[in-house]
Each structure stands twice: as structure tokens, then as C-alpha cells.
Design a protein around this nucleic acid. Sequence first.
RNA 1: CGGGGUGUAGCGCAGCCCGGUUAGCGCAUCUGGUUUGGGACCAGAGGGUCGCAGGUUCGAAUCCUGCCACCCCGACCA
Length: 491
Amino acid sequence: MAKFLTNREENYSQWYNDLVIKADLAENSAVRGCMVIKPYGYAIWEKIQAELDRLFKATGHVNAYFPLFIPKSFFSKEAAHVEGFAKECAVVTHYRLKNDENGKGIVVDPTAKLEEELIIRPTSETIIWHSYKNWIQSYRDLPILINQWANVVRWEMRTRLFLRTTEFLWQEGHTAHATREEAIEETEKMINVYAGFAENSMALPVIKGYKSETERFAGALDTFAIEALMQDGKALQCGTSHFLGQNFAKAFDVQFTDRTGKLDYVWATSWGVSTRLMGAIIMGHADNHGLVLPPKLAPIQVVIIPIYKNIEQLATLSETANKIKAGLEALGISVKYDDRDNNKPGWKFADYELKGVPVRLAIGPRDLENKTVEVARRDNLTKETIPIDKVNEHIPKLLEDIQANIFNKALNFRKENTFYVDKWDDFLKILDNQGGFIMAHWDGTKETEEKIKEESKATIRCIPFDSPEEDGKCIYSGKPSKRRVLFARSY
RNA sequence: CGGGGUGUAGCGCAGCCCGGUUAGCGCAUCUGGUUUGGGACCAGAGGGUCGCAGGUUCGAAUCCUGCCACCCCGACCA
């Protein structure tokens, strides 16, 4: 078979780039660092959105929308927050263009300078908390459980399609609560929603945990994250949920009267996932033939390909194929019948494999005669022939089976690539050889964390919630430690 | 932003070092025909501001300057 993709083993990042382009998910745009998400890629994002939106609403949240622009002054109200984001903000300074007097096209009109510059949101805490000030007076106004689907801009140095783009799509939840406990509960609830989504829908096992102080969100008291292991042994942060304490309430002076009549600041959380999840799906499951989409997020779950010698034969096949299609659609399965005549079946087989379609049905005269259909599954590339009248029974089970199988495959990969390490030499050796997750002791200090990062390029991905207490010595400093934390090189 | 590389048709590339009439190849596209159970074949056709802007020259894809974009490696990050 001819090579259409760079081999994953040869050059992982080239393979990734090839895949995104060739599977028609996205492409680079005329603007540096910004991508065009193409219909097939966007369809996957829409599936992600739909399921997350359902989960948010099921946990009591509602959607709203806040502006793209944030007055510069808002941004500086929370000290840690501005510190964290200042270096990557796009700024609007003017509101008008004009024709150049020297005939050199269009220029910024210097008389149209804004009184106060506007920041294009890198995240919306500030403008949202400015609104919340007006919305909250009493404990009866709480909690506020709002999510918004939006685009944000972070002026990154180096970008990669889906993993890190200058503009990206995401959702950001911003909640306000009367008590610290309730806000912490919300923060935990949402990291669990994310973890559930990653594992159930994306078929990607994740580790939930706390971020170390240095890795925390700018302005948060605590950040929870889910971390997934990619096939090249690097970690990808897939979602974060932040306990913001009263920091933003204080910065924007949002106080409420509690049950006892006492005035207090509101407690906050924020949480988000982005189009980066697309990258996680790709790097978590895809192979040298292309994408492997989890059935629950695949825009096309089943593709039917006719094999025929002439138009008359195609017409006969189409009759059966359309019946199969209608039957599966009635079961809520998305089916594409590809009867285009410009490509041969072999071409289509390869193309749908590249696009990660979970199940392919091929039907030809031979099948028609035997009342059968050939079923090929994308996850393990096996084929079987089944009677047509068993399709409605077989395919739903098969989709579930594929969903479970790719999850288990990813889980096994993670198990095989998670190492409990106690010696610094082994730590470095593992990172350089195969990568993976490393569970090791850490003395809890910023200094050690920094040194480890410098010398190994690995960071603390998180302190897993379920990491058991055990006495040990820090992998780097040898000082005492109570539990292992999760290290990895990351995206 | 630092180091390295690349930019020529929708895609992948040759030509550039050593300037010279109409800029070439493969894939894709279009037309006609034969095909169709794992990326078909034959014949014909269309498609180019040679990344952009200046400069040198009788003449620039080719030489010079600046800029832009993309890729890889670092620092920053979801």
C-alpha cells in the first residue's frame, strides 16, 4: 500500500500534522497561528459540544454570552491574573481605518484611537465578574451557574493545529457561590464531569488531580486537571477546573448578604475545555492508517460502500444499501452511503480509514446473492461477513464494542507506560527512552519542581486525587515526601 | 523571540549554485472510453502575479535587500 501519512514511529509530530490536514480536520489560515476548522473537523467539535452541553445542563448550568472585548482596566484588577496573561494578550487600540493619503491602501486612522484600549479575551473571568457585581446582592441570588461557548485569543509563541492555536474555541464555566465548601464542591463536580466525558465519550483514560502551585491557573487558589497520556509518551492536559476563592469577588467588589445578614465576598470557580480535545482524540487513538474516532464522537459512524461493475448493478445495490441505511438511522446511528462513481472501492476504503469512521459496510453482487454484507471495523482493521438481516442487531453492539476497545487499548497503553520511579537516573532514562507517566516522590517545594523541570523537561502534571499516602524520599532532593505525584513531559 | 530549514499549478516536487525566448514533472481536476471485492488504465484538455515588496541587469524563478508565512528544535502556554 502506498504511503499517505508519515509513519507515526518515524516522526510523531509530522504524522500528527499530516493527519490533521489529510483527514480534512483543519488547515492553517492566512493569520499566523490561527486555523480554519474544516467541516469534518468541526462536525467532531459539534459532537463534543453537544455532549458537554448536555452534561453541563444536567448538572444545573445554563448558557450565556459575554463580550469578546475586555476593557484593559478590568484586566489589571486581579494581580495574579494579569501577571499570568499579560504576555499573551491581543490589544485593540483603534476602531477605524482610512484610505492612505499616499495611495498605499488602507491604514489605521490615528484619530480613531480608543480612550481605553480593549483586550481580546484570553479568558473571561474579569468581564464576567464585573457583570456579577450587578447581579448579586443576596445569598438568594446564589449560586450562579453559567457556562459560555466562545472563542478566546492567546498570543502564543509556537502554535500547532488544535493543540495550541492563537485563537481557539472553548467553553468556560463561571460560577458564584455563597460558601467556600459549595465552590470547592462545584470545582470537583466539574473536573468529574470532564473526566467522565473524556473516558466515556472520547474513550481516553485520564488522571484527575491537583495542580502544583506553579502550574495553577493565574488567580486560582486551587486548580484541578485531567491529564491524558498520548501515544508518544507525552502528557496532554485535557481540562481544568479552578477554585478561585474570593479573589475575583474582591477584585470586582462582589459582596452579598448571607442568611445572618452579614456581608461577605462571593466564592468563585471557573472551568474549561477547548478544541485541544480534538488533539487528544487524534493523538490518543490514531494509527498509521489515519484517525480512529470513538464511535460516540464520530460524525459518520457507519459508511456503506457499494461494489459494482455497471450502473444497473449499482442501482440494485443501492436499493439494499439504502434499506440498511434507513434501518440503522432508525436506531440513531449516523450512516453515509457513498455511491460516488469517481473513486474505486479501494480508494474509498482507504479514505474512510484515514477519516477514522468506526464501521465500514461493503456490499457487492456477491453479497447480494448471499444476502450478506462485509463489516470492517476501524479500531483493529478486521473484517467479517454477516447476514443482512443481522445488521440492525449487530452494528449497535459493534459500535459499543469499538468504543470500549479503544478505551481499553488506551488504558493498557497508559498502564504499560506508567512507571513508579525512585531513582533520579531512572527518571531521566525513562523520559529519554520511551516517555510516559512517572509516579515519583516530590518534596513539595517550588525550587525542586523548578530544578526537575530544568534538568528533565518534565513537569508535575498533577498530584493525583487517588495517589495513596506512602512515606518516601523526593526523587530529586531526597527529602521526605508523603505521596507520589505525576510527572511527564507534556504538550 | 533565538537557532535551523522551506516557500515554483489544488497537493507533492525539479529547475536556482553558474541569469537568456513559450517554467517542467507526478498526483489531483475536466472530456471521452475501458474499468470497479483494498488507493485502476488509455487518449486528450485546462490550470502559474515562481510567497510579497523593492533593487541590480538589455534580460530575474535564478543575484542582492527587506518583509511575510509554514515546518523542526528551544523559552511561554489550554
